[in-house]
Simulated scan of single mutants.
Amino acid sequence: MLKPSLHVLARHVSHRARGFATTNTSRMQKATTTLLIVGSSAAVAAYFLLPDISRGAPTSDTKPINPSHFTPAELVSSTFASNGTKILTVAIPPELLPTERDLFAPIWSVFIKDDDIQVERPYTPLDGVDKDGNMKFWIKRYNHGEVSRWLHSKKVGETIEIRGPVRTWSWKDDAWDEIILISGGTGVTPFYQLLRTVFSGNSFKGRITLLHSSRLPSELPPPDVLDPLLELARHNPDKFRLKLFVDSFGETKDRSFAGVEIHQGRIGKDVIWRAVHSASNFPSLRGLFSRDSDNSDRKILFLICGPEQMVGAIAGPYGRNYSQGPIGGVLQSLGYKSHQVWKL
Score class of each variant (00 low, 15 high):
M1R: 07
K3Q: 14
P4W: 10
L6K: 12
H7W: 13
V8H: 06
V8Y: 03
H15F: 08
R16I: 08
T23N: 07
T32K: 15
T62M: 13
T62F: 12
K63W: 01
S68I: 08
A73M: 01
S78A: 12
N83H: 11
K86M: 04
P98K: 09
I107A: 15
S109N: 15
I117D: 14
V119D: 04
P125I: 01
L126I: 05
V129S: 02
H144P: 06
V147L: 01
S148L: 10
R149E: 04
L151P: 00
L151W: 00
H152S: 06
I162T: 00
R167A: 13
T168Y: 06
S170A: 14
I179T: 00
T186C: 10
T186F: 05
G187F: 03
V188D: 03
T189W: 03
F191C: 13
Y192Q: 12
Y192A: 11
R196W: 00
V198M: 01
S203Y: 10
K205D: 10
I208A: 02
L229K: 03
L232A: 00
L232N: 00
N236C: 01
N236F: 00
P237K: 11
F240T: 06
K243H: 08
L244F: 03
D247A: 04
E251Q: 13
H263R: 15
I272N: 12
I272W: 04
S280N: 04
P283G: 04
S293M: 09
K299P: 02
L303N: 02
M310S: 09
V311D: 07
G312F: 02
A313S: 12
G328R: 01
Q332V: 06
S333P: 02
H339D: 10
